[in-house]
């Protein structure tokens, strides 16, 4: 475009029209490229069959006090722990200002079911599965980079930023829950 002759007549209406046409063509072209690129990227996203928010039901009557199971929900492991009274007391005795991600133990369980702790079993650092009943706080210890969680699954030490996540769940009966 920038030949000498049209530089000299920069402000003639003709040049403006041409620039407009160039820009409009390029813009339409860019929209076209983006339109083709999107399905090529989007195919990588989980499809509807994966997304269908499957919920699982679980009968907890076999989990004895002081033990835990790991179940699978949406391909992700979930801890269900039947806590001892000692664990509950320990969790509730911790002052809020000692917590990296302050949250009351009461808010991490369902009222009246204070012994049942249900949490997504993935370390909030980079997603390894922490090992139960270990670490300095009697809760969970992540083998990957050493994050430690207390008996409420709250982060106490190490690189993880957040408490273990409590998934959406509800009690169907006293010993049966539905996750999701």
């Amino acid at each position: 475009m920038a030949t000498e002759s049209n530089l000299a007549h920069d402000d003639t209406p003709d040049t403006g029209k041409r620039d407009f046409l160039y820009i409009a063509t390029a813009a339409v072209g860019a929209v076209g490229v983006a339109g083709v690129a999107w399905p090529i990227i989007n195919q990588m996203n989980p499809d509807a069959s994966v997304l269908a928010l499957a919920s699982v039901e679980y009968d907890m009557s076999k989990i004895e006090t002081g033990s835990a199971v790991t179940i699978k929900w949406r391909g992700t492991p979930v801890f269900v722990r039947n806590r001892t009274q000692k664990e509950i007391d320990e969790a509730r005795a911790v002052p809020m200002d000692q917590l990296k991600d302050p949250e009351r133990d009461q808010d991490r369980v369902k009222p009246g079911h204070d012994n049942w702790l249900v949490m997504i079993a993935l370390c909030t650092h980079l997603g390894c599965i922490p090992v139960g009943e270990s670490g300095d706080y009697g809760g969970w210890l992540c083998p990957c980079h050493g994050s430690q969680y207390d008996t409420s699954g709250r982060i106490r030490k190490g690189p993880a930023p957040k408490n273990l996540v409590v998934p959406p769940y509800k009690f169907l009966t006293d010993t049966k829950i539905q996750i999701g």
Binding site: I41, M44, N45, P46, R74, G75, T76
Partner: peptide, 12 residues
Amino acid sequence: QLLRGGFAVDNP
């Protein structure tokens, strides 16, 4: 999710 093609690392 885009990278993994699901909620967890899996076949995709």
